[in-house]
Design a binder for these strands. Structure first.
Lengths: 351, 351
DNA sequence: CGCTATTTGAGGTGCGTACCTCACGTAAAG
DNA sequence: CTTTACGTGAGGTACGCACCTCAAATAGCG
């Protein structure tokens, strides 16, 4: 006999369809004993709720929101693009997604946005924001309203988020150190480490992983203190320019942040040695170009499309109280060279 | 007003629901003029078929089959595992998948299997097999019966497959050459290239890309002719052992095939220089171990879970005549170091 | 024991599409 | 002019589940 339905379940559990429904959808007014009876029957007959039918029946449309910083860098634009693409691709699966930008580094802005979303009829939120006590509380309140929350790209380990969607930053730093160390096998020298700011958790984590590996495995290289650009070209020119001038034995540069436009511009204008290994984060038009011209030795990145789709899958699974495939949601740290650069999309098929 | 349904479509096109259905599902018995009318209306009102309802309505269960070589290597075991996992994860989406093993290197075996599947009520096939005129014809015949076919891991560019799911092998070879070249910056020397067999297209493509980059960018390294192991430990010991002994200036080794157990064993027993860069393909328990111990400098791989899910998504989209997200189906060439090794699954959550 | 509060059952409707049957045209072929 | 085939319309059922209502059964309590 084929796939058991709720009807079979009801029969097997010796209860009515209504009760099965109550148990399946976590409604109350059912004695614990009865709940157990149904759950046992589920195991016994191997019942799996037909998601297709379930989503059809709850006529609901899921509305998910990505809360992103309002910085104007390409990485964020790509995320917005990916959200839009995913949103239209998922339209026929009753899911819609949109982005909301909040003032970066202004916890209050994040908090207000989250409050607003909670009041709205949003079904899930993906948040990319620095962890502060205020945002942590706001996330808790959103969750309290039964809305699921994932942290996105930047984790907030102490917040009540359902899950973190993004790479492990310490491992990303370790990866960078390994690449630099192995690309600069021969002679000792200095490595400049550049970040937008060291205030953020991801910068800290990456730096931590980076130092760990560099010190342990490549003692012939020594890393500079983190140079902060604040994503400001003028400041970058000053601090990074100075550092370049002051580092005669420069062997490599690690651009730790996703926003590396200013730093890349500065490096270009200074005409870095071709032997100097430069490693950046995130695949953008800029870093792609860097790989092609050879300005960049490697790019460490995460698949943005995968990131967004993963967040949406997780939010949806939470919203529908459905199971999920864990292994599918692990975001990999990708290393990109010129040779394995994904080809650019040509005109999308209309099919 | 919310999402237009088939009813709205019928009204907008000025035809009946039955005709809309005939057009949407490509049934015949509709004049071209009417078909156009409906298609225009689809564009006008922005109709998108609700896949959820569609799959529910066609009560059908999709049955997909992966045809894989019967070689006993870990890479293939992992694929089988991934298929099983995907199959049970997709149960509630009306998709089931299974694997069938055929005698590797026996075109007849592939052909017979495909014929059998075509006769059966299979809805789609993913084939991993060397390209031969016979398999090409067999694929054509399967397609003629309206069953969709994707080539899997190993492409057959001249066959009538709907799509290829896997990495670009020439780029994989280029990636290997780049890594080896950059890891061995300092002094000139030799690179051993090892494959299970050079007969297969993927070996040829990888070798081609490898040579291209090595010659162009790293002329201080020269690559050996491809050493064939036939995945046989004894033979491997002989040919690879000889090569090792005969190559005093050995700087790197490229293990080109997914089945690298024999070669890795041989290298281990011969005690390769720690400075020698070894690069292998595909993440398995063996190559993972190699990365952790430092025996391997890097592993070039493709995410097997992604591979399998992608194949299933594509086959399903074809079977349902539904659109697909192109960017989601591009398989990336991943570079794995010890630092960015995905952590092993712990006990899967039951949730 | 009766009374109230809680738990359970029976039955129905609707989600948006697929797929089926039957009947009614209309135009081409004989 | 009749036959035939084809194009189209009308209407229905089913898919598996969510969600609703109302009544009936049961448990808990004094």
């Amino acid at each position: 006999m084929s796939k058991p339905t709720t009807r079979d379940l009801a029969a097997a559990a010796g209860v009515s369809l209504a009760t099965v429904d109550r148990v399946l959808n976590g409604r109350d007014g059912v004695r614990q004993k009865t709940v157990d009876k149904v759950n046992d029957a589920i195991r016994d007959i191997g019942f799996v709720r037909d998601q297709t039918a379930a989503t059809l029946a709850r006529k609901r449309f899921y509305d998910f929101v990505f809360v992103l910083p309002d910085r104007q860098d390409e990485f964020l634009s790509l995320i917005v693009e990916a959200v839009d693409e995913a949103s239209s691709a998922l339209r026929h699966e009753r899911v819609s997604a949109r982005t909301v930008r909040v003032a970066a580094n202004d916890p209050l802005s994040v908090v207000q946005t989250l409050e607003g979303l909670a009041r709205d009829k949003v079904d899930g939120v993906a948040v990319m924001a620095p962890e502060t006590p205020q945002t942590r509380d706001a996330i808790q309140r959103v969750k309290d309203r039964g809305i699921s929350v994932v942290t996105f790209v930047a984790d907030q380990p102490n917040a009540a988020r359902d899950r973190y969607i993004g790479i492990n930053d310490a491992d990303a730093g370790r990866t960078a150190a390994t690449l630099i160390g192995r690309f600069c096998r021969a002679s000792p020298g200095a490595v400049l480490v550049v970040a937008e700011t060291i205030q953020s958790r991801d910068s800290l984590d990456r730096r931590h992983g980076f130092d760990e590996v560099l010190q342990a495995d490549f003692p012939h290289l020594h890393a500079s203190p983190t140079i902060e650009t604040y994503a400001d070209p003028l400041r970058t020119e000053r601090v990074l320019g100075n550092a370049l001038a002051a580092t005669p034995d420069l062997r490599a540069i690690y651009l730790m942040s996703s926003a590396s436009a200013a730093a890349l511009g500065c490096l270009k204008s200074h005409g870095i040695d071709r032997e100097c290994v430069v490693i950046a984060h995130e695949l953008t038009a800029l870093t792609r170009q860097g790989l092609i011209t050879g300005q960049l030795g490697a790019v460490i990145t995460q698949d943005i499309g995968h990131l967004v789709r993963s967040a949406l899958r997780v939010l949806r699974a939470k919203a529908e109280n459905a199971p999920m495939v864990e292994s599918q949601e692990r975001i990999r740290i990708e290393i990109l060279l010129q040779a394995n650069l994904p080809r650019i999309d040509t005109a999308p098929e209309t099919n």
